[in-house]
Design a protein around this nucleic acid. Structure first.
Length: 453
RNA sequence: GCGUCGGUGCCCGAGUGGCCUAAGGGAGCGGCCUGCAAAGCCGUACAAUCGCGGGUUCAAAUCCCGCCCGGCGCUCCA
């Protein structure tokens, strides 16, 4: 059985799903006011990996991942750029989706937009009123009363009083909130802002309510896993939980949080110059090395993404691809998977998504497959190939399509002819020509192969 | 300041009481293979030690206490 680290219980727990053989997951996506950075990619990758692994384990999985397309930052930025909120958010939504696809993150089953769930949000706010968990402040909006949730603060590992102390030590609120911890469910309309009608007058959604509306609508009460970046645990997730539970809906059974990512020793978002956007990193390193680098770190540990890390990951991908190239030339048989390797891979992943360990199993299998091929042990080599292919599929690291190019093929043939007549000077000349075009030749017992470098 | 997670070789990282004489990958070095390469295989140095100092235990990288350093949170944030 899979174990995951549940933020709520603050420990590793067995994943016991609401429905047998089905897992419902809600992963918090970005607020689209700018291009995605590597941190967004890491978070999305975590839940992509979780889904792939659970499906491979035999579950059916429903993954919902939202796009928040209305919030203060979006309003601010679109005003500054003189375009509509919708124009701004749809531009960045498209970039986000395109780049995640390029990165190899599969589309979630649902990708809800906050602006399409205002009805559902209003319904929940109504329910909160009915439960006495919400109150209105004239001119400001509707607020949530944190006393409505007995263990408010549990996700942050703190009591309400501890939170209150911190909160009071900070900004005194301008509104007449009953408690400094209370937060807006519905914000009254302000000039120049997009608004929706509501029983409490025109306004727009407040904090966190969009995720509650979308997750409950798409996955139902008591869905299995709610995830996101660790920076969202408090207050975002805590408040979602409060809103949901207080309105009478049981919320997520488990909470998962993926850790942050630093680039070249600097926090994301503050460094300039260096790549920090997903787009730049994809262009610089390619999707697969980037993915390998991220998967070689555990999702719950802070990750440093440096040039050196990437150098290592590029080497790793090359090793994987070289293995496939070699096998391509071998007389491979149809075989079953190596159950020993599969079991080790599975127990690594069952242990709170232990991808670094799981990847170690893949590399070990590549090694034994290569060794088997050297020994002309085709059966074992074939089994290693089957195993590596299947496991890489689970990790989303499968080999790209094979390169093909007629002109290069003909140069390679020319070189083969020269080699056959032992005209090595001519053969090396052709190899140099190809090298100038970033093509590297590998001579194998089954003939030459080439690849882009 | 309070809470929380973490600090393992040159780099990335696994390991959470005995199988650790610390996995795996990358980079390094030597050998084999090759016309030469590339890829691959084999071997090998680098952790007498796992941030530092105490403690518990027959036994600790793994548990406890203190300290140092870093991430995240304390109503923007993946």
């Amino acid at each position: 059985m899979m174990q995951i680290f549940d933020t709520m219980q603050n420990r590793l727990v067995d994943l016991e799903t609401r429905d047998p053989n089905h897992v419902s997951i809600y992963a918090c996506g970005p607020t689209v006011y700018d291009v995605p950075h590597l941190g967004h990619a890491r978070t999305a990758l975590t839940y992509d990996l979780l889904k792939r692994f659970l499906m491979w384990s035999g579950y059916t999985v429903t993954l919902a991942s939202n796009i928040t397309d209305i919030d203060d930052k979006i309003i601010e930025r679109s005003a500054r750029e003189g375009i509509s909120e919708n124009e701004l958010s749809s531009t960045y939504t498209k970039i986000y989706i395109d780049q995640l696809r390029e990165f190899g993150v599969a589309d979630p089953d649902f990708r809800p937009l906050a602006t399409e769930y205002v009805e559902e949000m209003l319904a929940i706010i109504t329910q909160l009123f009915e439960q006495g968990a919400a109150y209105e402040i004239e001119g400001h909006g509707v607020y949530f009363d944190v006393d409505s949730l007995a263990d408010y603060g549990a996700l942050a590992g703190r009591t309400v009083n501890e939170l209150r102390e911190s909160a009071q030590a900070r900004v005194a609120s301008e509104e007449d909130k009953q408690d400094p911890l209370d937060f807006a469910l519905w914000k009254s309309a302000k000039p120049g802002e997009p608004t929706w009608d509501s029983p409490w007058g025109p306004g727009r959604p407040g904090w966190h309510i969009e995720c509650v509306a979308m997750s409950l609508h798409l996955l139902g009460d008591g869905f299995d896993i709610h995830g996101g970046g660790s920076d969202l645990a408090f207050p975002h997730h805590e408040n979602e939980r409060a809103e949901s539970e207080a309105s009478g809906h049981s919320f997520a059974r488990y909470w998962m949080h993926s850790a942050m990512l630093n680039v070249n020793g600097e926090k994301m978002g503050k460094s300039l110059g260096n790549f920090r956007t997903l787009g730049d990193a994809l262009a610089q390193y390619g999707p697969r090395p980037l993915r390998l680098a991220m998967l070689q770190a555990h999702y719950r540990s802070l990750m440093e993404l440096s040039d050196e890390t990437m150098k290592g990951a590029i080497g790793g991908i090359e090793r994987i691809d070289a293995f496939f190239r070699r096998m391509l030339g071998a007389d491979i048989q149809e075989t079953s998977i190596d159950t020993e390797a599969k079991d080790r891979f599975m127990s690594a992943m069952n242990n709170d998504l232990g991808s670094p360990d799981a990847i170690a199993v893949v590399f070990e299998t590549i090694n034994s497959g290569n060794a088997a091929l050297d020994d002309k042990n085709i059966k074992e080599a074939s089994m290693a190939l089957t195993t590596v292919s299947e496991l890489l599929e689970v990790l989303g690291l499968s080999k790209d399509t094979v390169d093909s190019d007629e002109e290069i093929d003909s140069l390679v043939s020319e070189r083969e002819a020269a080699r056959a007549s032992r005209d090595f000077a001519a053969a090396d000349r052709i190899r140099d020509i190809l090298k100038d075009r970033n093509i590297e030749i590998e001579d194998t017992p089954n003939g030459p192969l080439w690849r882009k470098i």
